[in-house]
Deep mutational scan, measured.
Amino acid sequence: MDVFMKGLSKAKEGVVAAAEKTKQGVAEAAGKTKEGVLYVGSKTKEGVVHGVATVAEKTKEQVTNVGGAVVTGVTAVAQKTVEGAGSIAAATGFVKKDQLGKNEEGAPQEGILEDMPVDPDNEAYEMPSEEGYQDYEPEA
């Protein structure tokens, strides 16, 4: 019985440690998101679009440190934060509304985080759909 109880105690310690790591990862992701939003706020009209992409990228980098179902929630929060940063930029006159959601080359930025393969159960990952990809044929 002692062996059984000791095993359960060790398992509990492992769960607590994993929860603490997840909590730490979420806190880091939130900190990076805040950094990115402050970065966007300090940019001029020309830099705002690039700044919004930076927020998304920093958040995406930190999301990889967070495991399990938390990833889905962090990704949703990050996307809403990026959308909010863009709205703030438009409201303050840093950028025109028609410039939001495009990178410096004018290509749409939507789907940055949505296409990231995420499995809350950590069982399997699927690649994003290939609808947006084109076949590449090298020139002879």
Rank of each mutant, 00 (worst) to 15 (best):
D2K: 02
A27V: 07
G25S: 10
T64E: 07
T75A: 15
K96E: 11
L8T: 00
K58E: 01
A19V: 11
A29G: 02
K102G: 04
E123M: 12
P117R: 04
D98I: 03
V40D: 00
E20C: 12
A29Y: 15
A78L: 13
L8Y: 01
E131Q: 07
G84Y: 15
T44Q: 01
G73R: 06
K43D: 00
F94N: 03
M116I: 08
T72M: 15
V15H: 00
T59Y: 15
E139F: 13
V16I: 13
E137S: 10
E46G: 10
V55S: 01
P117H: 05
A89N: 03
A89F: 11
V49L: 11
K45C: 10
A27E: 02
N122C: 06
G25I: 12
N65I: 13
A17Q: 10
T75P: 01
G47R: 13
L100M: 07
V15P: 00
K23D: 00
E126N: 12
E28K: 06
V48I: 12
V49A: 12
K60M: 15
Q62S: 09
G106D: 04
K97R: 13
E57A: 08
L100G: 09
P108W: 07
V66P: 01
Q109D: 12
K21P: 00
V82E: 02
Y133Q: 07
E110F: 07
E123D: 13
D135C: 06
D135T: 09
E57W: 06
I88G: 04
Q62A: 09
E137Y: 10
K12Y: 03
K12S: 04
G7V: 13
V95D: 05
S87R: 04
V71K: 06
S9A: 04
A56H: 07
G106R: 06
V3W: 02
Q134S: 08
K34I: 08
T81M: 11
L38E: 03
K45Y: 13
K10A: 10
V16D: 01
I112M: 06
E104C: 02
G25L: 15
G41Q: 07
E46K: 05
V52A: 08
Q109F: 10
A76Y: 09
G51A: 12
T64Q: 09
E123C: 14
K102L: 13
P117A: 05
K96F: 15
K34A: 10
